[in-house]
Amino acid sequence: MKKAIFPALAILLVMASSFVMFSQEWKVGDNYSIKFDGGDPSGTFSGLKASINFDPSDLGTSKFDATIDVATINTGNGMKNTHAKSEKWFDAAKYPTIQFTSSAISKTATGYEAKGTLTMHGVQKEIVIPFTFENNTFKGTFSVNRLDYNINKEEPNHGGSTFKVDIEVPVTK
């Protein structure tokens, strides 16, 4: 029995190594950008953490799990940044992150689309994010209506309600 331990360990190590070698886990590069445009305000988020498992030839096992730190919002104006993080808008103290977790990734005519759940301001919504993957860079554009997420519902016309979100994430192995 003891003799079998080392061959078993060797097999286990080979299997683990091959899993690491062939896994399609990607790391987020430094120069990513997450831009939102609602006219006024417009801006960026910078606190992206993501677990990206993406293999174009095996979309069934591909999965995204991304989190953005709400406190990293930048509209270019300090006063607007403070307002955006306040209780009235994102309420960053209570809801510090925005999260997207994919449930299915499929091929489309122009690229791919990720279906999943966007959690923002404590509200979960199913959304579809169309994206492309070229030169180790994910690019996607989609729209978000802040009223769907109960963000300052009292003032639906203050600063626009629908935001175009542009995501560009270079990745490395």
Binding site: G43, T44, G76, N77, G78
Partner: peptide, 12 residues
């Protein structure tokens, strides 16, 4: 009230 370019850090 001015909005700075988004690549400038700490606009506050």
């Amino acid at each position: 009230s001015i909005s700075l370019p988004l690549d400038i850090k700490s606009p506050e």
